[in-house]
Amino acid sequence: MTKKLIAEGLGTLILVLFGCGAAVLMGAQIGMLGIALAFGLAIVAAAYGLGAISGAHLNPAVSLGVLLAGRMTAAEFAGYVVAQILGAIVGAGLLYAIASGAPGYDIAVNGLGQNGYGAGYLGEYSLTSALIFEAVMTFLFVTVILGATGPGSTAGFAGLAIGLTLAAIHLVGINVTGVSVNPARSIGPALFVGGKAMADLWVFIVAPLAGGALAGIVNAAGLTRA
């Protein structure tokens, strides 16, 4: 179990450092397409590098879906969530340490790849839009994960399918919420940025968990598997 928790923490660190790092350090150069690919490629890297150890959930919403699909215990779920959140915090901390070395960087202005919605945030989408987007996209994301890793799935391709799905979700929704679909990914940067990022954080905990839970329940009922 210790190896699994270390893998989950390290994998979530990779996701935050690569994905949010692309937005903070290279966003102006690579644009939204580059940021979307960074998140997707981070998942691919973690899935193939660490998946054999822990399954590379890297996301409390994914772990909740796996739990409700009957593939892990409640104790394992709790351990995974703690490891994922700690990994995200460390990843965000490393990113802040790097970004703060650039002349003129101000976390209050430049941010840390935090999620948000409403006035002053990217496309300024409403709370309703943010909740719907995060819940629906997390449901679809976790459904793909459960299908790609479940009985009858094609061996060796799960990491690629999952990474491409996350990249596609980012291509659709960066302008809406910055794309969370992952409470840990949202918690890490928000803790450092504070202010509006912390005020908005509940959306990126509640909506992804609701979507992940629904995906797990639907999968357990056999509606999304052979």
Rank of each mutant, 00 (worst) to 15 (best):
Y117T: 15
G194L: 10
F39R: 05
G216V: 03
V44N: 03
F204I: 02
L95Y: 00
N110R: 10
Q29F: 08
L68A: 13
A155P: 08
T154K: 15
D106L: 11
S180A: 14
P60L: 11
M137K: 08
G49S: 08
L95R: 07
V16P: 02
N59W: 12
S126P: 01
V142H: 12
I174E: 08
G104S: 13
V66Y: 07
L166R: 09
A130Q: 11
A190P: 06
A74W: 15
A190H: 00
G178D: 03
A97R: 03
L94T: 00
G11M: 01
L86V: 15
H170F: 00
A78S: 02
A42I: 03
P151I: 12
A46S: 15
L64A: 14
M1T: 07
G188D: 10
T128Y: 01
I169N: 08
G91W: 09
G211L: 11
K4W: 00
A168C: 04
T128H: 11
L25W: 01
Y80H: 13
Y125S: 06
Y105P: 00
Q29H: 05
I53N: 02
A75I: 14
L50C: 07
L50V: 14
L17A: 01
F18R: 04
V176S: 07
V44G: 05
L171W: 03
Y105R: 07
S180K: 01
G9S: 09
L171P: 05
F39S: 01
V203K: 06
E76S: 15
V218Q: 12
F39G: 04
A36C: 02
L95M: 04
F204C: 12
A108S: 14
T149V: 09
G34V: 00
T12F: 08
A155D: 11
Y105D: 12
N175S: 14
N219P: 00
A158K: 10
F133W: 07
P189Y: 05
V109F: 10
I145C: 13
A207F: 10
S126N: 08
L122W: 12
Y125W: 13
G188V: 05
I43H: 11
V203A: 10
V109L: 15
V81Q: 10
G195P: 09
T143C: 13
G212F: 00
N59F: 09
G150N: 10
G111S: 02
S129K: 13
L58E: 07
G178Q: 02
V203M: 12
G91S: 12
G111M: 01
I14V: 13
A28P: 02
L166P: 03
F18G: 03
I89L: 13
L223Y: 02
A130K: 10
L209M: 14
L64N: 04
V66W: 07
A207T: 10
G147M: 13
S180L: 08
I89M: 06
A221S: 11
M32C: 01
C20Q: 05
N182S: 09
T138H: 03
Q114T: 14
L17V: 00
S153R: 14
A75R: 15
A23C: 00
N110M: 09
T224M: 15
V206R: 01
G118K: 13
T73K: 14
A215R: 08
T128M: 11
S54C: 10
I53Q: 06
Y80R: 05
A184R: 02
Q29A: 15
G87Y: 00
I35C: 09
L201A: 10
G212S: 11
L17E: 03
A97S: 08
V136W: 07
